[in-house]
Simulated assay, not measured.
Amino acid sequence: MVAERRHGEYKVPGGKLVVADVAQDGEGDGATLSEVAISGDFFLEPDEALGTINAALVGLPSTASVATMAAAVATAVGDDVAMVGFSPEAVAIAVRRALGHSTSWGDHTFEVIHGAAEVPFMHMALDEVLTQSVGAGTRGPTLRIWEWERTTVVIGSFQSMRNEIDPEGAQRQGVTVTRRVSGGGAMFIQPGNTITYSLSVPASLVDGLSFEQSYAFLDDWVLGALRDPGSTRATCRSTTSPRPRARSPARHRSATPPAPCCTT
């Protein structure tokens, strides 16, 4: 019986494409990698190291984590091999995508929400509810584009109101101040003069990425979509409903809390 070959890809943010074609022996938790072929547009020196990378992964459990696979590759290649445009972690992510443990943009259908202008406090509430709902699996990946009803300053979840805001000045200028659920700095927002979005995704899309890496990975896709709306591979469906609701109580947050990105 010929083992089924499985295909996965991972584009390193700011780097190269890593492709994994794999096969496994067995099924379920007892399955192991029987064949691994890594390819891509990366650079590798010496060339023979590619065979070393493939061999390092053969025999590992198919359920091995990104950390386990990456450690096996790093140990096998040692310090004398130059991996340019990719890393052991990138190889591991591509392999896990091939095995179906991690997902890519093309595996998801995104709901795009672009509703009417809302007051700042409603935006903050929607931000939190949508993130929790995606994390709990009660709704699919969501890209929400915000429209603002009034001039606002939004501070990050860890910022000090006292240190960042002049309350009297804000009141005098008619500026509303609110706090979002994610970190980062204060943002000044004017209706019609700001692009604001939040992206909520399941943990599988950023499997194996650190918190910081996941931001770069997600931002890379969104910025690419803004540059060329026809270039992204994810499927989207649109809705004009400004107040989507979770279908069941949220229990977990998604892997990457949506971080509003503003350009004025």
Rank of each mutant, 00 (worst) to 15 (best):
G14Q: 07
A250T: 11
G185N: 04
V19Y: 00
F121C: 02
V129T: 10
R233M: 04
C236Y: 15
H101F: 13
A23Q: 13
G8V: 08
T235A: 14
P13F: 01
A98S: 13
K11H: 10
I145K: 06
V119W: 01
E147Q: 14
G183W: 01
S200T: 10
T68I: 04
D41Y: 06
T239I: 09
T264A: 13
M187I: 15
G185W: 02
A3S: 13
T178R: 09
V66I: 10
S231R: 13
F217K: 05
F86L: 10
D220V: 01
L226E: 05
D127V: 06
Y215H: 14
P191F: 02
T63L: 06
G85A: 04
M187F: 04
S241I: 13
A64S: 15
P260H: 02
V2D: 07
R253A: 12
T232K: 03
R245S: 14
A37E: 11
A117S: 12
A170N: 07
A31V: 09
A72V: 05
M187S: 09
V181N: 09
A98C: 09
L226K: 13
I195G: 02
F121P: 00
T263E: 01
T52P: 03
A70F: 03
A216N: 12
L60W: 01
A92F: 03
S214H: 08
L226H: 05
P229A: 08
D25Y: 07
T75L: 09
P46I: 05
L199P: 03
V84P: 08
A170D: 03
A116W: 00
T232A: 11
L226F: 15
V112Q: 06
G230W: 04
W105V: 00
Q213C: 05
T196Q: 03
A67F: 02
D107Y: 11
V119M: 06
D29R: 13
R180Q: 06
P46C: 06
V2H: 08
G100S: 08
P202K: 09
L44P: 08
A250I: 04
Y10D: 05
R162F: 02
E147W: 00
K11Y: 00
F211I: 14
G192D: 07
P141V: 05
V91H: 03
N193P: 00
P229M: 11
V18I: 12
E4G: 02
E35C: 02
T142E: 01
